[in-house]
């Protein structure tokens, strides 16, 4: 069962990566990058069970936190074009 899950995750990974390569717009790439991060976490979790070491789930949780940081940085760059943008500075 874990083997089937692993193969499914790998197929999804191939689809997401091909979308990231083909584009055509930057937003496709951002979404594809986010999905690749999520799929890497899923692959880590499934691999842990496949090789009989479910302790890897803790590492998967850490990956989730890292993924959020990257996505937040990308979104802030989209919104303001600058990561050091200060919201309070603009108000009169």
């Amino acid at each position: 069962m874990f083997i089937v899950a692993t193969v499914a995750v790998l197929i999804a990974l191939v689809l997401a990566v091909s979308r990231a390569i083909l584009g055509p717009s930057v937003f496709d790439r951002v979404l594809a990058g986010n999905s690749v991060g999520t799929l890497a976490i899923l692959l880590l979790a499934v691999l842990g069970f496949l090789t009989g070491r479910p302790e890897w789930l803790d590492i998967a949780l850490t990956y989730c936190l890292l993924n959020i940081i990257g996505t937040l940085a990308v979104l802030k760059y989209f919104r303001y074009g600058d990561l050091a943008y200060d919201d309070e500075k603009e108000q009169p």
Partner: peptide, 30 residues
């Protein structure tokens, strides 16, 4: 497009981290 390059480099990192994990080097992957 350099913005696309940054996103693709992030994907590259996640994939190489998965490769490290499959090779049992979980700390390097982290």
């Amino acid at each position: 497009n350099l913005f696309g390059v940054v996103i693709l480099a992030g994907i590259y990192s996640f994939l190489i981290a998965s490769v490290m994990m499959v090779l049992d080097a979980v700390d390097v992957a982290m």
